[in-house]
Design a protein around this nucleic acid. Structure first.
Lengths: 362, 362
DNA sequence: GTTGTCTGTGCAATCGTTTGCGGATGATCG
DNA sequence: CGATCATCCGCAAACGATTGCACAGACAAC
């Protein structure tokens, strides 16, 4: 037994009543039950069995269909979709590229993609690309080797070639969450979201504000920042470049960027973080600077993930319909896979005010 | 164009310079390049080409290997792993069952699984089972239909049949994160983790404590709770049943359970939440009850996810080596897939004290 | 010169499924 | 009663790769 625990007693605790779990018993002498097996039992040709089991059992008598299907379940037959795909040319597999699944936003989108794809009879494979070209390359290669039917790209960045490559290969694809000039994408209106955040803070009287802008190559961060700055400029309070810092999309990045902003000679009275995790990191920075949230530094996040509402100081955030994005991206992809045209989608965000910006929590 | 935004201008903003992105251009008149294509160009038989491209190009002259490989990349050949799998019987695919990917803990484990599997030449498919029998059934079915080579089960619950079914089918599998009596599992020592939390709170003088125990059917919640209660009992302060409430593993569940605990006639002075998301929800409950964290209600979480450290009030948490769990589960599964025995693993957790329990933050 | 070994290659079967085509059967119609 | 037609089913060829086996040629040993 592999022991790594500091306490042998505790290590033994778990498995002490289990006799032989380290060795898995191989299957009994049962052969794999294939279409031929079913056909043999039903006394029909394998081609007939295949037709009988297909969705529209055309050209097969109802009696035969009944018999074949009954035997199929009795024998525990399971169609080999790989073999079927070899013949039909379709793997019934949709690939999904995300920066990382530990980002709850992408995980949420992926969940809804998987549900929608499943409803349409497709399985999904997801790849963490870590916003890194090599990872994306190798994962995309692996997907193509499995003859993926279509790809949903959730990690596109400016200058990224994945979308172009798929276009060239003729593999249907759709972008979700992040946009890329010239490619079909299903996103929320990040520009508007940034503006909403700005208008909220403007209405509260904040004039000197900072922005934690996220990845400079991701359209989300770019457009949210643009929308925000544009609204502030229009109001007559342009945001100085020194008050806009880029960052990773995670807590760590938010912390570092928050520290940077609060270290300014004249620190901002409010911070707009283009994503809730960044905002969470910024909270840490505010705390470390010995300042109080809202009273001294207001904070607005983006996406309104679940935990935003239950934090010790609930976070004001711009809510985007993540589930809808996922679902709609699948719909668009399915259209393209049928060779039809699909429309880009821009979902409207909504600002949810909470304690990091306003006194009264509702 | 599909318009859902409240502002037509903003809707147009995104795609205004893109002429024809709704319609994807189908591939040019190029045929799929298959092994036969490469063989033809290299003027060898397809079997020779196959051997030349395999890892140990045994029985092929080095000159032929060179020529075939060169042509393969030139022609953009990509081996169809589905077709290969049909012949070899191996899909080079590992299935992963998780309750949900929006749970950062499982997402982290899955990430490390995917990395480790990738390094061994396997792809992974992940399924959200939502701790629901039907979802697990259908996802597992889909995986088996793709002739998965092995399964990593991260969502097992007491009474669940997935592991038994795989055992019966002879499909290699390993449990991760959660245990199940009689099945090989790679976990952290949850019992010890619970004890660590208890000892920490005992040392701080807390005598009347509550536990938010998570899912009553998941070994993680069960053992963490057991370890905790046992330590308190051993110290002479048994935890009354009314102070132990079960919950979902998410923020919402933690909030509800927290409210329940704080509504008791004599509310606990400290709460042990068996997972950080639950702790996050409990934070909300503490806030809603108008109490102060630590001073009036101390809080200990579990797993030490990234955000725990940067919260406005940083969360004391029991850290478990999530990445190691994922990696080790792949190692164990690979062993089993080779028909060898693998040892169960119990990784030691560590308590990280922070502001929700102790005054001095370091 | 026969036998033997070794190396490099081709042949053909195989994995499990789908599907175009044609044959057999029975019903319908004129 | 013969022609026409629909219905049901089997045959065999794919799909793209892998692999046991045979064979041809080179070369060495006896």
């Amino acid at each position: 037994m592999h022991r790594t625990g500091p306490d042998a007693l505790d290590c033994l605790y778990a498995q002490r009543r289990s006799p032989d779990i380290t060795q898995q018993i191989p299957p009994a002498g049962n052969q794999r039950v294939t279409l031929a097996t079913v056909a043999r039992h039903a006394q029909v040709h394998v081609s007939t069995a295949s037709r009988a089991l297909s969705d529209d059992a055309a050209g097969v008598s109802t009696e035969t269909v009944r018999r074949v299907r009954e035997l199929a379940v009795m024998l525990g037959y399971r169609r080999d979709v790989g073999a079927a795909g070899l013949r039909t040319g379709s793997s019934r597999l949709i690939g999904v590229l995300v920066p990382r699944l530990t980002d709850i936003v992408l995980a949420t989108i992926y969940e809804s993609i998987d549900v929608a794809a499943g409803a349409a009879g497709y399985s999904t494979v997801v790849a963490n690309t870590l916003d890194d070209t090599d990872h994306r390359r190798s994962h995309l290669d692996a997907m193509l080797s499995r003859r993926i039917d279509g790809v949903i790209i959730g990690d596109s960045r400016i200058g990224d070639t994945a979308a172009y490559e798929l276009q060239k290969l003729g593999v249907p694809y759709v972008l979700v969450m992040r946009k890329l000039e010239g490619h079909l994408s299903i996103t929320t209106d990040d520009f508007l979201g940034g503006r909403l955040a700005a208008e909220h803070l403007l209405g509260l009287g904040h004039r000197r504000v900072g922005v934690i802008a996220g990845d400079v190559l991701a359209s989300t961060g770019i457009e949210r920042t643009q929308g925000f700055r544009q609204a502030y400029e229009a109001a007559g309070y342009p945001v100085d470049d020194r008050y806009v810092v880029s960052s990773g999309f995670d807590t760590r990045g938010g912390l570092a960027a928050g520290v940077q902003l609060l270290d300014l000679a004249e620190p901002p009275t409010a911070i707009f973080a283009v994503n809730d995790f960044i905002a969470l990191g910024a909270m840490g920075a505010v705390r470390d600077a010995g300042k109080r949230l809202r009273e001294e530094v207001a904070l607005v996040g983006y996406n309104d993930i679940d935990i935003a509402a239950t934090l010790p100081v609930p976070l004001t955030s711009v809510r985007s319909a993540l589930g809808d994005m996922g679902r709609l991206s699948v719909e668009a992809l399915l259209l393209r896979m049928k060779g039809q045209a699909a429309d880009p989608v821009l979902l409207p965000p909504v600002l949810v005010p909470r304690a990091t910006t306003v006194g009264v929590v509702h």
